Structure formats: C-alpha cells, structure tokens
Amino acid sequence: MLAALDHHLLDDSARAGLRGWPRFAMEFLYFGVKEARACLFVGLFFGAVLLVPRAGVLGLPRYDALLVLALGIQAWMVWSGLESWDELKAVSLFHLVGFALEVFKVSGSIQSWSYPDFAYTKLWGVPLFSGFMYASIGSYIIQAWRLFDLRIRHHPPYWMAVLIAVLIYVNFFTHHYLGDYRWYLAACALGLYARTTVVFRPLDRERRMPMLLAFVLIGFFIWLAENISTFWGVWRYPNQLGAWSVVHVSKWSSWSLLVVMTFTIVAHLKHIKASIHVPEQ
C-alpha cells in the first residue's frame, strides 16, 4: 500500500482540467499528503514517544523501549527501500552529531535539560534513543526531497555552506563560555541563502519558495514537537521541573539553525547533490 501511495504521489501527469480554486485546493491537499508521508519516520517515532507509558513496556524502561522501537523503524525503512544505505549513513551521522550535543547539554556543568527516568541504555546521562530525534529531521528532508522532486537554485558555494553549518554547531557548545553568536550566524546564513530557492512539485506543476522560509517553517514544527515531548515528560528543561510550561520561543531560532546544518549534510548525498545548482563564481 505504501509503494502504491508513493507511485501515485510521484505521478506528475498533467491535470489540464484543474484551474483556479479547484487547482489550489488539490495542490494544497497533495502538498499536505506528501508532507505527512515525508514525516513517516518522525510520525512513527513521536507516536511511540506519546504511546509508550512512563512506566515502560513489559518491564523494559521507557527510554529503552523507545530505542528498540526507533531501531526497528529505521531497519524497516532500509529493508523496504524507503531509505538507501547511503541515506542511512547520513541519518546515522545526524544521530551521532545530535547525541554528542545531548551529552554536552545534560552534563553537570551545563544542565540545559535532563532525562529524569532510569534506562539501561543511558550513556553520560543521555538515553541512546535521543539521537533519533535529530536523525528524524534528516530522514524527513531525505523523504521530502524524493516525494517533492526537490531542486535547489542558487545554492551558495559548498565550502561556505559547510563553514556556516560547522560554526552553527560549534556555537551550540561555545555559547556557554564565549557568548551566544546565534544571531550573527543567522545573519550570515541569511546572506548566504538570500537568493536560494527551493523548486518543488506538489502535484503536476513546479512551485517555488525561498530556502530561508523552508528553514524557518521546519524549525517551527520541530519546536512544536519539542513542546509535546516536554509536556509528556520525555525530557525537561530546568524551568519545567516543578510544572510544565511552554518551551521558550527562542528555541525556534535554534532549531531553524540546526535545520540549516542538517540540510547541509543531506545536500552532500550524491543523488541529491545532482539536483542542486551552484552559480558559477
């Protein structure tokens, strides 16, 4: 059924009879369906986050159960051909990058947030399943690239994109000691991607949107997911230990910058790089 759905979604046959509001409604519908389909890993993983009780499953602590489920989902996606081995390597890199950041953020000297529950698969206070929260962002971008037949116009030179991505990641660590340069980096990213456009196909015609808008929108939905996860007590910020409160809106900017970094990793996959246009210097 999933293969049939993908075949239908990838069909770009012209719908000549669609015009005006009916076309807008149909394209909006297909855009939503493709977005939902691209979020397959995200949906299954966060569905597990919401459904697995805090007491665990069959004697297995919650964090350990989530790790088993995340590994199962990832293995199924590769086995079914929804992700290739090369894409799995990129997703694994997201996992490692995210896990390293988590270890730093929950360390005794930083304590930006914490994972309060017991787990057998905790290392340095961080449950291993947490890396999949970052890997899910990469999985979404990879799936969306295929389903929307994405192409990128006026992408900045790769060395510049890599440099700003590395600096964004480093700032997540160094801002605790050297000051937060997030907005300076955001300004640099704004300049780099100001001309960059995403070309996508929700139905049978190509549409365009600024790359920067895509970064901000994805960051917003990650921020929403973070609010849901903290509400369910998967992890907690210090100000949420007594009673839950909305995650500060400043985290939206942090997630948007993280999406820039994630996109840069995905953009180096061979089959994706072929659809990215970098202007001649």
Rank of each mutant, 00 (worst) to 15 (best):
W232E: 03
V249H: 12
K251M: 09
Y237I: 01
Y237H: 03
G233S: 05
L241C: 11
R236W: 03
Y237D: 02
S229N: 15
P238I: 02
V247S: 02
T262C: 09
V249K: 08
A243T: 14
I265K: 12
T230K: 00
N239M: 06
L258K: 09
R236D: 04
V234A: 05
G242W: 05
W235N: 02
Y237R: 01
L241A: 15
Q240D: 05
S256Y: 12
L258H: 08
S250D: 01
S250C: 00
T262E: 06
S245C: 04
S250F: 00
W232D: 04
V260F: 00
V246R: 15
G242T: 13
W255N: 06
V246L: 15
M261I: 06
L241F: 11
K251Q: 11
V234Q: 06
R236A: 10
W232H: 14
W244Q: 10
S256R: 10
V234T: 11
F231I: 08
V234E: 04
G233T: 04
Q240N: 06
V234C: 04
K251R: 13
G233N: 05
N239P: 04
V260A: 03
L241P: 03
S254Y: 03
G242V: 09
T264V: 11
L257P: 08
F263N: 08
I265F: 14
S253R: 09
S245Q: 12
S229P: 12
L241T: 15
S245I: 03
S256A: 15
Q240T: 06
S229Y: 04
M261D: 06
P238D: 03
A243V: 12
V246K: 12
F231G: 07
S229K: 08
M261C: 07
T230R: 00
W252H: 13
W235S: 01
S256M: 14
L241K: 15
R236V: 09
L257D: 09
T262W: 06
F231S: 09
T262S: 12
R236P: 02
L258C: 10
G233H: 03
G233L: 03
V246N: 14
W252F: 13
T262R: 05
S229C: 15
W235I: 02
G233A: 04
Y237E: 02
T230Q: 01
R236G: 04
S254F: 04
V260I: 15
I265T: 15
W255H: 07
I265Y: 14
S250V: 02
L241D: 15
L241H: 14
V249P: 07
V249L: 11
G242N: 14
W252Y: 13
V246H: 13
K251V: 11
K251I: 11
V247R: 00
T264G: 05
W235K: 01
Y237V: 02
W232V: 05
W252G: 09
W252S: 09
V247A: 01
T230H: 00
